[in-house]
Nucleic acid binder design. Structure first.
Length: 350
DNA sequence: GATCCGTGGCC
DNA sequence: TGGCCAAGGAT
């Protein structure tokens, strides 16, 4: 099976900016561990298509781990805006600083050393070992889970089936080409063994796949039932000053931890389940201005749905700003520093 | 082990 | 159109 998979990968595997292709590896090209690490962090719960432009931007802005370590954190957060899961950006910066300042800029190649760094967990440690150092590893991500549960027709639901999946995956790994093998099985999941309508006719493992034999590939992986998302309500206040290219909006930085930690937001109320418990807009507003209700926006987070009523007001002249508040331009390049929910709120007020 | 963390594309 | 899904980690 491993020979069939690697032959398929040699032929059909994707060429990605951070990837060393088998022919390049044979020619002696060695991966840049910094680039591999950067790609792995960005690809956590994120598609290749979405992460790729950010990867190019980060490498261009900060070509080495030392450059990233020395960058102001707010620049890193702003560059990350739109990618989601902002703890990744905070950990990315902290990890770069640890590698640059404590490890001389050299990424560890052992699992313990990698796992000790912020933002690097079980999967990412193995992925870096395989892709950057071509060392033996056991990469189990969502792609591998899908492939393995189908090949072995595993009925137990995720996540409890994980140890069983890991055991089966390890039995198939190729010790001679660990880097290529890890990327091959993930490519197989991404390109052939897709969640819906898998291309079994083109799969190198079709003849060995129990689910394929039974004809119920799409039943796997079986997943535990998910919970319903509660709805939370809040008020958001968009204060605008200036016109045209110079137009600005009043923002503040969210607390370091928790939802959208360290990101910018417009002033607003807490987000509560009971809409009736919200204060009146005049009571909650950050400044006493002539407010108008500009609209309502909805944004769905991982575990709740947010509905914001957006109030807008122009500000001319000077005012005593609330603590921590400052102005940023609303033209696209600066608006890109806002997470999506806040972009929607600002947009509703324009 | 369960929960908390974004976002955009897909059918 | 809305639920599902994506190269997970931290607590």
């Amino acid at each position: 099976m491993r020979a069939r998979l690697l032959a398929w990968y040699d032929r059909e595997g994707r060429t990605l900016p951070w990837r060393i292709r088998p022919e390049e590896r044979v020619a002696g090209r060695v991966a840049d561990a910094y680039a591999v690490w950067l790609s792995e962090i960005m690809l956590q719960q994120t598609t290749v298509a979405h992460a790729a432009p950010y990867y190019a931007k980060f490498l261009s802005l900060w070509p080495t781990v030392h450059d990233l370590a020395d960058a102001p954190r707010e620049d890193v957060m702003a560059a990350w805006a739109g990618l989601g899961y902002y703890a990744r950006a905070r950990n990315l910066h902290a990890c770069a600083q640890a590698v640059s300042r404590e490890l001389g800029g050299v990424f560890p190649s052992d699992l313990e050393g990698l796992r000790a760094l912020p933002g690097i967990g079980e999967y990412t440690a193995h992925a870096i070992r395989a892709a950057a150092f071509n060392l033996p590893a056991s990469v189990v991500d969502a792609n591998v889970e899908r492939v393995i549960t189908r090949v072995f027709r595993i009925e137990a639901p995720l996540p409890s089936a994980k140890p069983d999946i890991r055991k089966h995956a390890a039995s198939l790994a190729d010790p001679a080409r660990p880097g290529d093998y890890a990327q091959a099985i993930m490519d197989l999941g991404a390109v052939i063994c897709t969640p819906r309508a898998p291309s079994c006719g083109a799969c190198p493992w079709a003849a060995h796949c129990a689910a394929r034999a039974a004809g119920d590939q799409e039943r796997y992986p079986v997943k535990a039932a998910k919970k319903v998302k509660p709805v939370r309500h809040g008020l958001a206040f968009v204060v605008l000053r200036g016109e045209g290219e110079g137009r600005e909006v009043l923002v503040r930085t969210r607390p370091d931890k928790g939802l959208l930690g360290g990101m910018l937001e417009v002033p607003g109320t807490d987000w509560v389940v009971d809409a009736g418990a919200l204060p009146g807009f005049s009571e909650a507003a950050p400044l006493a201005l002539r407010w108008r209700e500009a609209g309502r926006i909805t944004h769905v987070f991982t575990h709740f749905e947010l509905r914001l009523t957006v109030f807008a007001a122009p500000l001319s002249g000077e005012a005593n700003l609330p603590d921590g508040a400052r102005w940023v331009g609303v033209h696209p390049i600066r608006a890109a520093g806002l997470p999506t929910a806040m972009k929607k709120a600002v947009q509703a007020a324009l």
